[in-house]
Nucleic acid binder design. Structure first.
Lengths: 126, 126
DNA sequence: GCAATATATCCACTATTCTAGAAATATGGA
DNA sequence: TCCATATTTCTAGAATAGTGGATATATTGC
């Protein structure tokens, strides 16, 4: 993941309807939710929401599948994982954050230092 | 941090000039960089960059201070920390990510499971 | 084949964002 | 005080994004 890959993801998450829809899908898990249910829960007209779901889908942060008459959307955790890793690796200084893979558990372990306690930043604050 | 707080941060990072400028500031550390140096390194006209720096600054993800004739910008790591925590807590399912504070070291420890290996998601892929 | 359901696409309108030239402001030095 | 430097603010035009009514498409059951 580089800057060019990250832009459409940040863009996808930078609008209230989309971020809210994405969070509902995260809560829903791999099973996902049909477009209509999202529209109802968010109180957003179905065509407007459809526009935003396409946006999220184009960015790759959600995916869809048809089930009968419904289109079921679900969060793409792997993309979210990559975005978080990008933010830690490329958008945090080494002093404040580190990431390493734990092969045994299959986890990425991130350590975020509570940077505000560090003296350098304290004195630089405006 | 909630959805309303996160939107302006995602928005700030969702544009190439801004994300690139932010990353330069991250690399620069607490010391920061003057607006002119950023403008030069990015090849962006200084008034255009000034617009984007205001945008980042309004979002709170960078801050500025005057030093002589220069305005020095620097990344706000604490806000980035909070945004990453928000993404893990509220935009990742419990199965795939967890976060806890280590009081002794003052670090937030995040574990991101490599979700794509989990059978549930594998079979749900479109 | 027809009606009902679920969703996407088309369209026009409004609002916002991005861009960069020109002018304004703040600072430091002679 | 005057000039050079560093940066912001003003401005207007171009591009892009968001909205929702109307319509089209796909699916299911009768």
């Amino acid at each position: 993941m580089d800057v060019k890959d990250a832009i459409p993801l940040f863009d996808a998450l930078s609008q209230e309807t989309r971020l809210s829809a994405f969070r509902l899908l995260v809560q829903a898990g791999a099973q996902g939710l049909p477009a209509g249910a999202l529209s109802e829960r968010l109180g957003t007209p179905q065509n407007t929401l459809s526009f935003h779901l396409s946006h999220l889908s184009n960015a790759g942060i959600i995916q869809s599948r048809r089930e009968g008459r419904s289109i079921i959307y679900s969060a793409n955790y792997e993309v979210m994982h990559r975005l978080i890793s990008f933010m830690v690796k490329d958008c945090c200084s080494d002093e404040f954050a580190s990431i390493h893979e734990d092969k045994r558990s299959g986890c990425s372990i991130i350590e975020l230092a509570d940077c505000c306690e560090l003296p350098e930043t304290k004195e630089e604050k405006q």
